[in-house]
Write a protein that binds this DNA or RNA. Structure first.
Lengths: 209, 209
DNA sequence: ACCTGAACACCGTTCAAGT
DNA sequence: ACCTGAACACCGTTCAAGT
């Protein structure tokens, strides 16, 4: 039976898991699907289109935020849901960041975030900027998490080297150590709460001025 | 006269400007320097090492923050200085984000940011998280800026396509339009100020609790 | 509709050998 | 100390031709 577009997409997601983003090549994907490389170009115009579709697939499961919830709970759930989705595949955050374009699910999440912040009471342009800033936080944090995991998993992490590099800045070394005492989940939640507190602060400022 | 390490680095920075990150290959660099590709490997262990050195070069000019300044002015100057440095070369932000490792200037900037936030009164681990969050903002914002510029410069920007994509979300389309009415500088400054307001809010919270 | 065969124009990297 | 020559093991992509 012939290969279909979704089969190619599925194969690509599996290959990503096994080989990581750097190991995901059209030629390897073809051979995993038992087909010649040129066959893939029947289903996707080029590699970029495949990566875009993969990024879309990745965030397709981010749940809608219940509109009955208050704005901060909605923003919080969207951010957490996005992080979970990005973490659901190896190199997911980097894959997504590399294809950050206007596609249905991405727009859906962006629109929902925006609505949360306009509902909070921010003017539209500012709500847009706030939504972007939250996305930068989620992406940056999750990229960092996954890079960290990858380094440890592949045994590339050298504690001595890290210690040597931070030696000129003992305060930084100490702060990093304390920072890494908490779990990634905890650090993400803390950062998210600080962010939302910042938005609340903007709101009181606005009411006052 | 023979090629030296700094010559290779300089050539690479110039090639980045002309060709962008995707066009920066070892082979093209070699031919720009009038040398065979293998010659480059005498000066740099591999391409990754060259990119790391380029990223370091990029942020080497970020000025020290005057320690006499209040913490928020220091954080603000560091963030602005970093953005300026990243914007000083084509694809600078993407180059830097792709090599975000422990190198002297990067550590120097990180340590300075950390000190700003501990001086503000945040506990060490929280100050560290705050510093990371600010870095995510600067990187994310600058990557987005440069991607936007690149799309316009190469004529790949299609307003009709953009309009069609956001059509299902009129609120989003409208907010994006208003958001893009201001300059990138203004948007960056706004985001930065909101961020610093958030830190100030954390501080009052902390004093109270 | 979907795939193969064969090619094109590239990559990064290694390493013996040259000067 | 610095470079060449020559090769190895890859890439993404195109396109005529097959079924």
């Amino acid at each position: 039976m012939p290969l279909r577009r979704p089969d190619v997409l599925d194969g690509a997601m599996r290959l990503l898991e096994e080989e990581g983003l750097a190991g995901l090549t059209m030629r390897r994907l073809a051979s995993a699907l038992d087909v010649r490389p040129s066959a893939l170009y029947w289903h996707f115009a080029d590699k970029r289109a495949l990566l875009d579709a993969m990024a879309e697939e990745l965030v397709s499961g981010v749940p809608e935020a219940d509109p009955a919830l208050p704005w901060d709970a909605r923003a919080s759930r969207l951010a957490t849901g996005l992080r979970t989705a990005l973490r659901s595949h190896r190199d997911g955050a980097r894959l997504y960041a590399g294809t950050f374009v206007a596609r249905p699910h991405t727009l859906r999440i962006g629109a929902a975030l925006l609505t949360a912040f306009t509902d909070a009471g921010l003017p539209r342009a500012r709500a847009m900027g706030t939504a972007f800033t939250l996305l930068y936080f989620v992406l940056g944090h999750t990229i960092e998490e996954q890079a960290h995991e990858e380094l440890h998993a592949t045994g590339e992490w050298d504690p001595d080297e890290a210690a040597a590099a931070t030696a000129p800045y003992p305060g930084l070394a100490q702060a990093l150590k304390e920072y890494e005492n908490s779990t990634p989940d905890q650090r993400f939640t803390d950062g998210l709460h600080n962010f939302l507190d910042g938005v609340r602060y903007q709101l009181t400022e606005h009411r006052g001025g």
